[in-house]
Computed example of a mutant assay.
Amino acid sequence: MKVPSEMTVRGMTPEGRALVRDRASKLDNEVGRETVALIDSLNLPLSSGGMSLDDPLYREMQEVVWSARARAAALDAVKAGLPALAGVDPILQEVMGSRYGREAQGTMNAGSLAAEVMRHLGYEKVGDGPLPENCIAKTAATWKPKAPLR
C-alpha cells in the first residue's frame, strides 16, 4: 500500500475515504500514518449526509465536548442565560480549527453532544436560543436544572 495522492482522495466517495482511512489507521507503519494524516487534513466528509458515530471528526468533537473544560464552559453559559453550546462552540473552534464547522452537520452534532452532556449533568431542555456572534452554530438548546424528585 502507498499513500494516495490528494487528488485521488478528493475523487473518492465519502464512504471510500472512510474505508481507506479505517484500513490505514490499522497499519502500524509510516504509510498508514501519512494516509490518515492526509485524509484528516483535507477536512472532507467520511460519510454521505453527515458524520457517522465512528467518524474521526465526530470522535474528536465528542472528546472536546465531554472534556472538563467544555463542561465547565457549558455550565457557565447556561448560568449566563445562554445555550450550553455558547460555551462549547468557541472551544471546538480553538481545538479543532477548520475541522469544526457546518459541513457534514458538524454544528448539529456539536449541539447533540452538548445536549448529552447537559442531560448527564442533570439539566433538562427548555427551548432554543440564539448563539453569540463568535459561535459558528447559530442556535442551540437552552437548559435548566431538573427539579428534584419528590
Rank of each mutant, 00 (worst) to 15 (best):
E63T: 14
N29R: 05
K26F: 06
K125G: 06
Y123V: 09
A18H: 09
L121R: 07
G16K: 05
A115S: 15
M108Q: 14
A72F: 01
P14D: 04
V36Q: 02
G49W: 03
D54V: 12
M12S: 04
D22C: 05
L92F: 11
R69A: 13
L46G: 04
V20S: 01
E15L: 08
V78M: 13
G50C: 08
R21E: 01
L44T: 08
P83D: 08
A86G: 02
V95Q: 13
L27R: 15
V126G: 07
V64I: 15
E15T: 12
E30I: 07
K26Y: 05
A77D: 01
P45H: 05
G16C: 05
A37G: 05
V64E: 12
R17S: 01
P83R: 06
A115T: 14
S47N: 09
A74G: 09
S48A: 10
A84D: 08
S48H: 08
E15P: 00
A73T: 04
V9H: 02
M7H: 12
V65T: 11
D55I: 05
E30C: 02
L92M: 15
M7S: 13
L42F: 03
K26R: 15
E63L: 13
M12A: 02
M96V: 10
T35S: 00
L19G: 02
E94N: 11
G127I: 07
A72H: 06
D28V: 06
S25L: 01
V9T: 03
Y58P: 01
R102G: 07
A70G: 02
E60I: 04
A110E: 06
E116P: 03
G87A: 04
R23P: 00
P83F: 07
S48D: 04
E116L: 13
K79V: 02
K26L: 14
V9W: 02
R119D: 13
D40Y: 01
A115H: 09
R119L: 15
V64R: 10
Q105S: 13
A80M: 06
N29I: 02
L19M: 12
D55M: 05
A80R: 13
G122L: 13
Y58F: 15
V65C: 11
N43H: 10
A72I: 03
L38G: 00
P45N: 05
D54Q: 10
M61K: 10
M118I: 07
A70S: 15
R71S: 05
A80E: 14
E116H: 13
A70Q: 02
A80V: 02
L44M: 06
H120G: 14
L46T: 01
G50N: 07
E124M: 15
G11H: 09
T107A: 12
L85Q: 15
N29Q: 05
E6V: 09
N29L: 01
A84R: 03
D28R: 14
L53R: 15
